[in-house]
Design a protein around this nucleic acid. Structure first.
Lengths: 115, 115
DNA sequence: TGCCCTTGGTACCCTATGGAAACCATGATG
DNA sequence: CATCATGGTTTCCATAGGGTACCAAGGGCA
Protein backbone atom coordinates (compact mmCIF):
# COMPACT_ATOMS: atom_id res chain seq x y z
CA UNK A 1 0.00 0.00 0.00
CA UNK A 2 1.71 3.20 -1.10
CA UNK A 3 -0.75 5.51 0.61
CA UNK A 4 -3.37 5.58 3.28
CA UNK A 5 -6.10 7.09 1.19
CA UNK A 6 -8.15 4.01 2.01
CA UNK A 7 -8.52 4.95 5.65
CA UNK A 8 -11.71 7.03 5.85
CA UNK A 9 -10.24 9.09 8.69
CA UNK A 10 -7.05 9.89 6.83
CA UNK A 11 -6.67 13.53 5.76
CA UNK A 12 -5.65 12.42 2.28
CA UNK A 13 -9.05 10.86 1.95
CA UNK A 14 -10.72 14.11 2.93
CA UNK A 15 -8.83 15.92 0.21
CA UNK A 16 -9.67 13.25 -2.32
CA UNK A 17 -13.34 13.53 -1.49
CA UNK A 18 -13.17 17.26 -2.02
CA UNK A 19 -11.19 17.53 -5.23
CA UNK A 20 -13.05 14.52 -6.57
CA UNK A 21 -16.13 16.70 -6.70
CA UNK A 22 -17.08 17.37 -10.29
CA UNK A 23 -17.74 21.06 -9.81
CA UNK A 24 -14.36 21.62 -8.18
CA UNK A 25 -12.70 19.93 -11.14
CA UNK A 26 -14.52 22.17 -13.60
CA UNK A 27 -13.76 25.27 -11.57
CA UNK A 28 -10.05 24.52 -11.63
CA UNK A 29 -10.14 23.95 -15.37
CA UNK A 30 -12.15 27.10 -15.82
CA UNK A 31 -9.74 29.26 -13.83
CA UNK A 32 -6.55 27.94 -15.39
CA UNK A 33 -6.39 30.98 -17.69
CA UNK A 34 -6.57 33.57 -14.94
CA UNK A 35 -9.14 35.19 -12.63
CA UNK A 36 -12.80 35.14 -13.50
CA UNK A 37 -15.96 36.63 -12.11
CA UNK A 38 -18.85 34.73 -10.60
CA UNK A 39 -21.13 35.14 -13.58
CA UNK A 40 -18.36 34.17 -15.98
CA UNK A 41 -17.83 30.96 -14.09
CA UNK A 42 -21.54 30.26 -13.91
CA UNK A 43 -21.87 30.73 -17.66
CA UNK A 44 -18.71 28.82 -18.50
CA UNK A 45 -19.63 25.78 -16.45
CA UNK A 46 -22.84 24.62 -17.99
CA UNK A 47 -25.48 23.28 -15.67
CA UNK A 48 -24.23 24.63 -12.38
CA UNK A 49 -26.71 26.47 -10.20
CA UNK A 50 -25.62 29.60 -8.33
CA UNK A 51 -26.17 27.95 -4.96
CA UNK A 52 -23.92 25.02 -5.70
CA UNK A 53 -21.33 27.21 -7.38
CA UNK A 54 -21.21 29.43 -4.31
CA UNK A 55 -20.81 26.41 -2.05
CA UNK A 56 -18.04 25.04 -4.22
CA UNK A 57 -16.15 28.32 -4.43
CA UNK A 58 -16.40 28.98 -0.70
CA UNK A 59 -15.17 25.48 0.11
CA UNK A 60 -12.27 25.81 -2.30
CA UNK A 61 -11.36 29.16 -0.82
CA UNK A 62 -11.39 27.67 2.68
CA UNK A 63 -9.03 24.97 1.45
CA UNK A 64 -6.64 27.55 0.01
CA UNK A 65 -7.21 26.55 -3.61
CA UNK A 66 -8.46 29.95 -4.73
CA UNK A 67 -8.94 33.50 -3.53
CA UNK A 68 -12.13 35.51 -3.51
CA UNK A 69 -11.62 39.19 -4.14
CA UNK A 70 -14.55 41.52 -3.64
CA UNK A 71 -14.45 44.94 -5.29
CA UNK A 72 -16.48 47.65 -3.59
CA UNK A 73 -18.39 48.62 -6.69
CA UNK A 74 -21.91 48.76 -7.93
CA UNK A 75 -23.00 46.50 -9.42
CA UNK A 76 -20.89 44.19 -7.29
CA UNK A 77 -17.80 42.55 -8.70
CA UNK A 78 -16.12 39.47 -7.31
CA UNK A 79 -13.13 37.80 -8.84
CA UNK A 80 -11.98 34.27 -8.19
CA UNK A 81 -8.41 33.27 -8.87
CA UNK A 82 -6.41 30.12 -8.31
CA UNK A 83 -3.72 30.30 -5.66
CA UNK A 84 -0.36 28.65 -6.39
CA UNK A 85 -1.74 25.64 -4.53
CA UNK A 86 -4.77 25.59 -6.78
CA UNK A 87 -2.61 25.98 -9.84
CA UNK A 88 -0.54 22.99 -8.80
CA UNK A 89 -3.73 20.97 -8.94
CA UNK A 90 -4.30 21.85 -12.55
CA UNK A 91 -1.89 19.30 -14.05
CA UNK A 92 -3.31 16.19 -12.35
CA UNK A 93 -6.86 17.29 -13.06
CA UNK A 94 -6.02 18.03 -16.65
CA UNK A 95 -4.63 14.50 -16.94
CA UNK A 96 -7.96 13.08 -15.87
CA UNK A 97 -9.83 15.40 -18.21
CA UNK A 98 -7.58 14.36 -21.07
CA UNK A 99 -8.22 10.72 -20.27
CA UNK A 100 -11.95 11.36 -20.34
CA UNK A 101 -11.76 13.07 -23.67
CA UNK A 102 -9.60 10.47 -25.36
CA UNK A 103 -11.51 7.45 -24.01
CA UNK A 104 -15.04 8.75 -24.14
CA UNK A 105 -15.75 6.69 -27.24
CA UNK A 106 -14.74 3.43 -25.61
CA UNK A 107 -16.77 4.14 -22.51
CA UNK A 108 -19.84 5.12 -24.46
CA UNK A 109 -19.50 2.01 -26.61
CA UNK A 110 -19.28 -0.20 -23.54
CA UNK A 111 -22.25 1.54 -22.01
CA UNK A 112 -24.27 1.01 -25.17
CA UNK A 113 -23.30 -2.65 -25.35
CA UNK A 114 -24.23 -3.25 -21.71
CA UNK A 115 -27.52 -1.42 -22.13
CA UNK B 1 -11.10 26.18 -25.07
CA UNK B 2 -9.25 22.92 -25.47
CA UNK B 3 -12.21 20.71 -24.65
CA UNK B 4 -15.95 20.77 -24.35
CA UNK B 5 -16.15 19.32 -20.87
CA UNK B 6 -18.02 22.46 -19.89
CA UNK B 7 -21.04 21.56 -21.95
CA UNK B 8 -23.32 19.57 -19.63
CA UNK B 9 -24.58 17.50 -22.56
CA UNK B 10 -21.12 16.59 -23.78
CA UNK B 11 -20.18 12.93 -23.33
CA UNK B 12 -16.83 13.96 -21.88
CA UNK B 13 -18.71 15.62 -19.08
CA UNK B 14 -20.64 12.43 -18.38
CA UNK B 15 -17.39 10.52 -18.07
CA UNK B 16 -15.90 13.19 -15.84
CA UNK B 17 -18.90 13.02 -13.55
CA UNK B 18 -18.52 9.27 -13.31
CA UNK B 19 -14.79 8.88 -12.76
CA UNK B 20 -14.84 11.93 -10.54
CA UNK B 21 -16.83 9.88 -8.05
CA UNK B 22 -14.70 9.21 -4.99
CA UNK B 23 -15.61 5.54 -4.74
CA UNK B 24 -14.69 4.91 -8.37
CA UNK B 25 -11.31 6.50 -7.75
CA UNK B 26 -10.68 4.29 -4.73
CA UNK B 27 -11.82 1.19 -6.59
CA UNK B 28 -9.36 1.84 -9.40
CA UNK B 29 -6.54 2.36 -6.92
CA UNK B 30 -7.60 -0.74 -5.04
CA UNK B 31 -7.62 -2.94 -8.14
CA UNK B 32 -4.32 -1.74 -9.58
CA UNK B 33 -2.56 -4.82 -8.16
CA UNK B 34 -4.85 -7.37 -9.76
CA UNK B 35 -8.31 -8.87 -9.26
CA UNK B 36 -10.02 -8.72 -5.88
CA UNK B 37 -13.17 -10.10 -4.36
CA UNK B 38 -16.14 -8.09 -3.19
CA UNK B 39 -15.33 -8.47 0.48
CA UNK B 40 -11.69 -7.62 -0.07
CA UNK B 41 -12.71 -4.39 -1.76
CA UNK B 42 -15.21 -3.59 0.94
CA UNK B 43 -12.58 -4.09 3.63
CA UNK B 44 -9.83 -2.30 1.73
CA UNK B 45 -11.91 0.79 1.05
CA UNK B 46 -12.75 2.01 4.49
CA UNK B 47 -16.20 3.48 5.00
CA UNK B 48 -17.94 2.16 1.91
CA UNK B 49 -21.26 0.44 2.44
CA UNK B 50 -22.08 -2.70 0.45
CA UNK B 51 -24.94 -0.99 -1.31
CA UNK B 52 -22.83 1.86 -2.61
CA UNK B 53 -19.96 -0.45 -3.47
CA UNK B 54 -22.30 -2.61 -5.51
CA UNK B 55 -23.67 0.41 -7.33
CA UNK B 56 -20.18 1.66 -8.06
CA UNK B 57 -18.90 -1.68 -9.32
CA UNK B 58 -21.94 -2.28 -11.52
CA UNK B 59 -21.66 1.18 -13.03
CA UNK B 60 -17.95 0.74 -13.69
CA UNK B 61 -18.59 -2.64 -15.30
CA UNK B 62 -21.25 -1.09 -17.53
CA UNK B 63 -18.71 1.51 -18.60
CA UNK B 64 -16.15 -1.14 -19.46
CA UNK B 65 -13.72 -0.18 -16.71
CA UNK B 66 -13.76 -3.54 -14.97
CA UNK B 67 -15.08 -7.07 -15.33
CA UNK B 68 -17.22 -8.97 -12.86
CA UNK B 69 -16.51 -12.67 -12.79
CA UNK B 70 -18.87 -14.91 -10.83
CA UNK B 71 -17.63 -18.36 -9.79
CA UNK B 72 -20.31 -21.00 -9.35
CA UNK B 73 -19.21 -21.94 -5.87
CA UNK B 74 -20.59 -21.99 -2.38
CA UNK B 75 -20.07 -19.71 -0.61
CA UNK B 76 -20.26 -17.44 -3.63
CA UNK B 77 -17.14 -15.92 -5.09
CA UNK B 78 -17.04 -12.85 -7.31
CA UNK B 79 -13.87 -11.30 -8.62
CA UNK B 80 -13.52 -7.81 -9.98
CA UNK B 81 -10.67 -6.92 -12.28
CA UNK B 82 -9.71 -3.84 -14.23
CA UNK B 83 -10.02 -4.05 -17.99
CA UNK B 84 -7.23 -2.52 -20.11
CA UNK B 85 -9.46 0.55 -20.31
CA UNK B 86 -9.70 0.66 -16.55
CA UNK B 87 -5.97 0.18 -16.22
CA UNK B 88 -5.36 3.12 -18.52
CA UNK B 89 -7.26 5.22 -16.02
CA UNK B 90 -4.89 4.33 -13.24
CA UNK B 91 -2.11 6.78 -14.15
CA UNK B 92 -4.25 9.95 -14.21
CA UNK B 93 -6.03 8.94 -11.02
CA UNK B 94 -2.76 8.15 -9.32
CA UNK B 95 -1.56 11.63 -10.26
CA UNK B 96 -4.50 13.14 -8.41
CA UNK B 97 -3.98 10.84 -5.43
CA UNK B 98 -0.30 11.80 -5.32
CA UNK B 99 -1.23 15.46 -5.39
CA UNK B 100 -3.62 14.92 -2.48
CA UNK B 101 -0.99 13.16 -0.46
CA UNK B 102 1.75 15.69 -1.05
CA UNK B 103 -0.42 18.75 -0.49
CA UNK B 104 -2.64 17.55 2.30
CA UNK B 105 -0.68 19.59 4.83
CA UNK B 106 -1.17 22.83 2.96
CA UNK B 107 -4.87 22.22 2.53
CA UNK B 108 -5.39 21.29 6.14
CA UNK B 109 -3.45 24.36 7.23
CA UNK B 110 -5.60 26.62 5.05
CA UNK B 111 -8.73 24.97 6.36
CA UNK B 112 -7.60 25.52 9.94
CA UNK B 113 -6.74 29.14 9.27
CA UNK B 114 -10.09 29.83 7.63
CA UNK B 115 -11.95 28.09 10.43
C1' DT C 1 -31.42 -34.38 10.83
C1' DG C 2 -30.87 -29.91 12.21
C1' DC C 3 -27.60 -25.97 12.93
C1' DC C 4 -24.28 -22.68 11.94
C1' DC C 5 -20.80 -20.72 8.83
C1' DT C 6 -19.42 -17.95 4.81
C1' DT C 7 -20.10 -14.80 0.81
C1' DG C 8 -22.13 -11.36 -1.92
C1' DG C 9 -25.14 -9.01 -2.04
C1' DT C 10 -30.71 -6.72 -1.08
C1' DA C 11 -34.30 -4.27 1.39
C1' DC C 12 -35.59 -0.73 4.21
C1' DC C 13 -35.27 3.65 6.22
C1' DC C 14 -33.56 8.19 7.19
C1' DT C 15 -30.73 12.13 6.39
C1' DA C 16 -27.77 15.05 3.69
C1' DT C 17 -26.91 16.84 -0.64
C1' DG C 18 -28.10 18.64 -5.32
C1' DG C 19 -30.94 21.04 -8.21
C1' DA C 20 -34.92 24.39 -9.81
C1' DA C 21 -36.95 28.57 -9.36
C1' DA C 22 -37.83 32.78 -7.19
C1' DC C 23 -36.27 36.58 -4.77
C1' DC C 24 -33.06 40.39 -2.91
C1' DA C 25 -29.88 44.65 -1.97
C1' DT C 26 -27.41 48.29 -4.03
C1' DG C 27 -26.80 52.29 -6.51
C1' DA C 28 -26.05 54.13 -11.28
C1' DT C 29 -28.65 55.32 -15.17
C1' DG C 30 -32.53 56.83 -18.20
C1' DC D 1 -39.31 56.86 -10.35
C1' DA D 2 -38.56 52.60 -12.75
C1' DT D 3 -34.92 49.74 -14.69
C1' DC D 4 -30.78 47.24 -15.00
C1' DA D 5 -26.84 44.43 -13.63
C1' DT D 6 -24.28 41.59 -10.27
C1' DG D 7 -23.60 38.19 -6.90
C1' DG D 8 -25.55 35.93 -4.57
C1' DT D 9 -29.62 33.88 -0.84
C1' DT D 10 -33.90 31.46 0.26
C1' DT D 11 -37.19 28.02 -0.24
C1' DC D 12 -38.76 23.81 -1.68
C1' DC D 13 -38.36 19.17 -3.49
C1' DA D 14 -36.22 14.92 -5.49
C1' DT D 15 -32.53 12.11 -5.39
C1' DA D 16 -28.40 9.99 -3.68
C1' DG D 17 -25.78 8.39 0.11
C1' DG D 18 -25.27 5.90 4.37
C1' DG D 19 -26.62 2.57 8.38
C1' DT D 20 -28.50 -1.52 9.68
C1' DA D 21 -30.76 -5.71 9.09
C1' DC D 22 -31.62 -9.45 6.49
C1' DC D 23 -31.35 -13.29 2.83
C1' DA D 24 -30.16 -17.57 -0.18
C1' DA D 25 -27.31 -21.59 -1.00
C1' DG D 26 -24.78 -25.19 0.26
C1' DG D 27 -20.95 -27.46 3.16
C1' DG D 28 -19.27 -28.98 7.51
C1' DC D 29 -20.33 -30.87 11.76
C1' DA D 30 -22.60 -32.60 15.85
Amino acid sequence: MNGDAFDPDCPTRLILDRIGDKWSVLVVLSLRGGPRRFTELRDAIGGVTPKVLTQTLRAMARDGLLTRHVFAEVPPRVEYELTPLGQSLHAPIQAVADWAESHVNEVMAARQAAG
